[in-house]
């Protein structure tokens, strides 16, 4: 799917998506793949941090199974709100993490 950079910006929910690669480092998980809406190559980084006393239920992996990713294809899609700090087409979707 070619990147449609002329696609108008819209907050479109694309649900659970597959076909994304995840790269783990000691304190990040990087998700890469094509935006299911505009087709642009997107990279989204989840970082570790302190969230107070949050702890995973006993016996479970602390990392979430699914997480929301926002398109960050880098294109200035038309109709993007002036106050938006996004750098994508506005679409968002969920990806499932490997255990």
């Amino acid at each position: 799917m070619a990147h449609d950079s002329a696609l108008k910006w819209a907050e479109e929910d694309r649900g659970l998506q597959t076909g994304f690669t995840t790269e783990r480092t000691s304190d990040t998980v990087i998700v890469r793949g094509a935006c299911p809406r505009c087709g642009g190559e997107t990279e989204w980084t989840f970082r570790t941090g302190d969230m107070g006393s949050l702890s995973a239920p006993a016996g479970q992996d602390a990392r979430p199974q699914t997480a929301t990713v926002i398109c960050s294809c880098g294109s200035a899609h038309p109709d993007r709100p002036a106050d938006s700090d996004e750098d994508g087409c506005g679409a968002f979707w969920k990806v499932r993490f490997e255990r």
Binding site: D27, F46, T48, G49, D50, L54, S55, A62, P64, A67
Partner: peptide
């Protein structure tokens, strides 16, 4: 607390 992967969820 401990360090966790921070996702929206």
């Amino acid at each position: 607390g401990d360090e966790h992967l921070i996702t929206g969820e």
